[in-house]
Design a protein around this nucleic acid. Structure first.
Lengths: 199, 199, 199, 199
DNA sequence: TATGAATGAGGGTTCATTCAT
DNA sequence: AATGAATGAACCCTCATTCAT
C-alpha cells in the first residue's frame, strides 16, 4: 500500500479523472481503462488506490457532497439580512451549477443509485439532510431577528432545496430556454414571503 | 416480424417486465436475460420485438412520458377555479409519485441519460416542454379569467414543475421525513400568489 | 440451461478436451480458452455447461475415479485362484497406466490438490478407500478358500496399492529403466506370500 | 547483486517462506507477494536473489531433494546387518514423512511438474536415481555378506522405494486409518525376503 | 412465433516483473 | 541492500446478440 504522501497526490488525481469520464459516459459504460487513461496512469495503478470500481464510485460520491457544503457554513455566519444572504446564495448556487454543467449527469446518476441501493441512499441522504438543516438554520435566524414571519421552517427549507434540484433538471434539458438564476431567485423570494401564509 | 396483434400483446408485456427489472438494477446492470425471465419469455423472443437493448430503453422512455401527460389535457378542460384545479393536480401528482416509488430510479436514470446524450435529451425535453406548456396554459386561463394576477406565466410554470421534480428527489431520500403532498401544496400555493410580485 | 440430450453430448466432449490440455499444462496454467479450442467450442459455451473452472476440475476428478473402478468389481466375481486373478489385474493395471502415460500428471496434480484442500481430499479419499476395499475383499476370498494364509488383509491391500502408486511415479521418471509390469508382478507376489509372516 | 554473506542469509530465508506458502496454496496460486510477506521482505527483494518465480521453484526443488539424501550415505556406512539398517531407515523415513505432512503437497506438485516438463523431470529423476542406487548398494552389501539371497537388486530397490512413495499418498488421504510405519516395515521385510523368489 | 444453443467482444481484476530512489 | 510505486499482459467470466430449428 502506497505511502500517505503518494496517496494524497494520486487519489485526487484519480477522482478528478473519474469525474470527467463518468460524466461523459456514465458509471457502467465507463471502463477502468478510461479512467486510467484520463488520469495518465495505468489501469493497475488505479487498483493500488481503490480496491474496485464500486469503491471508487463511493469515494467520488463522498467527495462530491463533502465539497458542496463547505460554503454553507460560511453562509450562516455572514452578516446582513437573511433574505439577502439567501438570495445571494441562490444566485451563486445556480451559477455554480451552470458552471459545472458537464458534471450534472453524475448527480442524476447518484440519485438513481440512491433510489435503488440502501448504501448509496444513506450517503446521499445524510448530505441532503445536512444541507436542509443549514438552510433551515438560516431561515430560523431570520425568524428570530423578526425579519421573517414564523412558519414551518423545516418545510420551507425543503421547498427551497426542491426548487434548486428541480431547476437543475429543467435547465439541463433546456439550457437556452430556462433562466435558472432568475426563476430560482423569484421562486425563493416568493416562498420566503408567502410559504405557509393564508392568501 | 410478428403480426400486429401479437405485437400489441408482447410489447407491453416486455416493457412492463423491463420497467420492473430496470427499476431494481438499473439499465446497465440489467441483463436481457433478466427482462426475459420477468416477462416469462426467452431472451431471443425479446429480439423479435426490440432490435436492441438500447431501443428497448428508448421505447420505455417514450411510454414513460407519454403516460404522464394524458391527465394533463383533462386538467385544462375541467371546470372550477384554476388554483383549485392546480392544487388538486399537485396533490394527485405527488400521490401518484409515491405510489410509483419503486420506479423512481428509472426517472433519475433518464435524467442522467438525457444529461449526457443528445438523443435522449431531445426526447425528455419534448416531454417536459409539453408538460410545461400544459401548466402554463392552465395558469394563463386563470390570468384571463381575472383569477390570477398577470405575471411571467412560463417562468411560473417552470418553478412549479421544479417543485415537483425536486420534491421527488428529497422524498426518495427521506420518505418518512418529508411530507411531499403538504409541502408541494403549500409551495405551489405560495408561488401562485407571490411569484414575481414585489414583496 | 441446455437440454439433457445436448448436455450428454457436450459434457464428455468438454471433459475430454480438458483432460488433454490439463495433462499438457496443468490446471492453473491451462486457460479456459485452451479447453474451448481443444473441444472445438467457444469459451462462452464451456460456461453453459460448467459454471467455473473449479467446477470443471471437480467434475473431471469425479469422472477420473468413477471410471477407474468399474473393472474392479469384475475382478471380484471372476473365476480362478485369487493370486492368479490379482496378478493378472496387476499386469493389466500397469499396462493401462503406461497406455495413459500422457495423463499421469493429472493424477499427481489431484494428489497435490487433495493434500491441500479438504474438499478434493474427501473425493480422492473415497475413491481410494473403495479401491482398497475391493482389493481387500479379493484377498479375503483367497484366505477363506484356504489359498492364502490369514494375515492382516486390510494392510496387505494398502501395501499392494502403494506398490501401484509408487511404481507409477518411478516409471514416469524413468520409463526406459523401470520395468513396471515385471516389478509390480514380483512385488505383489512377494507381498501375497510373505507379508506379515515371520521370516 | 548482494554480497555472498547476504545471499547465504536471504536465500534460505526466502526458500523457507516459499516452502510454507507453496505447501498451503500450490505453486500457481501462490503470489510472489505471499512469499515476500511470509519472509518478512518486500516483493522486489525476492528478485534480488531469484530472477523469476520459476527459478525460485527450481531452487526449491533442488534443495528439497538434496536434503533428502544426506542421511542415505550415512546409512551405507553404518554397522550391523543390512536388513536391520534398512528397516530402521524405513521407520525413520515414514516418521519423517509424517512430521513433514504439511509439505507433502509440494512433493506431489513436483511429480506433476516432472510428468509434464522435461527440465523438472530430469532434476527429479536424478534425485530418485541417486536414491535408488543408494538403496541398491545397501542391498548389495547384504548380498555380498551372505545375509541376503542374490536377486535382482535394482528391481528390489525400485519396489522398496515404490512402497515409500505409494504409502505417502495413501497416508495423506487417510492419516487416521493407515498405519504407515507398520505397513512400510512389514512390506519392506516381505520384499527383502521374498522378492523374486519362487513361492 | 418462439427458443435452445452458441459465441465474439469485451471488462474488471490480478500478478509477475521492473525501476527509481 | 531494500522497497514503494508502477505497469503490461493475461485470464476468468459475462452478456448482447445471432441463428438454426
Amino acid at each position: 500500500m502506497p505511502r500517505p504522501d503518494m496517496r494524497a497526490e494520486r487519489i485526487p488525481q484519480i477522482l478528478d479523472a473519474a469525474l470527467l469520464v463518468f460524466a461523459r459516459s456514465g458509471f457502467d459504460q465507463t471502463r477502468m481503462e478510461d479512467i486510467a487513461e484520463q488520469a495518465g496512469l495505468s489501469k493497475a495503478t488505479i487498483y493500488l488506490y481503490f480496491s474496485s470500481k464500486d469503491e471508487l464510485i463511493l469515494a467520488l460520491l463522498k467527495r462530491f457532497f463533502d465539497q458542496s457544503f463547505e460554503a454553507l457554513t460560511a453562509l450562516q455566519t455572514a452578516e446582513g439580512p437573511v433574505a439577502v444572504r439567501l438570495l445571494e446564495w441562490t444566485r451563486q448556487r445556480m451559477a455554480e451549477m451552470q458552471a459545472q454543467a458537464a458534471f450534472l449527469s453524475i448527480g442524476f446518476e447518484f440519485h438513481a443509485l440512491a433510489a435503488r441501493q440502501e448504501t448509496s441512499r444513506q450517503l446521499v441522504r445524510q448530505s441532503y439532510a445536512q444541507y436542509r438543516r443549514g438552510i433551515a438554520a438560516l431561515i430560523q435566524q431570520g425568524v428570530e431577528q423578526g425579519e421573517l414571519q414564523a412558519i414551518n421552517v423545516e418545510e420551507l427549507a425543503v421547498a427551497i432545496i426542491s426548487i434548486y434540484e428541480g431547476l437543475t433538471v429543467l435547465w439541463m434539458l433546456e439550457p437556452g430556454t430556462v433562466d435558472v438564476v432568475g426563476v430560482a431567485e423569484q421562486a425563493v423570494r416568493a416562498l420566503l414571503v408567502c410559504y405557509g401564509r393564508d392568501n
